[in-house]
């Protein structure tokens, strides 16, 4: 049962990765692209980690997966903020319809 739930979580994670990538390729400027990739990828990685944790045998591995996700949340958010600030500093204005 938990194995099936794990697979479902991983597949859902992959779908979010896919949508984040589509956003990265299709959105009009750096800010909207960041918005797409950072949010979707963080959630996707969380889902994949949760799915893998359901497949893992012992507690230490599950703890490591959680730690990986937390580290990626923190560093991913910082990276997005840095890229957005660098873009603003280079005079890129946010896209407007």
């Amino acid at each position: 049962m938990s194995a099936l739930a794990g697979v479902v979580l991983i597949v859902m994670g992959l779908l979010f990765f896919l949508s984040g990538t589509v956003g990265l390729l299709r959105f009009p400027d750096v800010f909207t692209r960041l918005h797409a990739i950072s949010k979707a990828d963080t959630l996707a990685l969380g889902l994949v980690c949760a799915g893998l944790a359901l497949h893992a045998d012992y507690g230490a591995l599950q703890l490591k997966l959680l730690l990986i996700w937390l580290l990626v949340i923190v560093s991913g958010a910082t990276c997005s903020s840095l890229i957005a600030r660098a873009a603003l500093a280079h005079g890129i204005r946010p896209w407007q319809r």
């Binding site: 923190v74 560093s75 958010a77 910082t78 903020s81 840095l82 600030r85 660098a86």
Partner: peptide, 16 residues
């Protein structure tokens, strides 16, 4: 760049 998030991240991650 003035980026307040980076020093905060480093303070968090450096011990790690």
């Amino acid at each position: 760049l003035p980026a307040p998030a980076l020093p905060a991240l480093v303070r968090l991650l450096f011990p790690l």
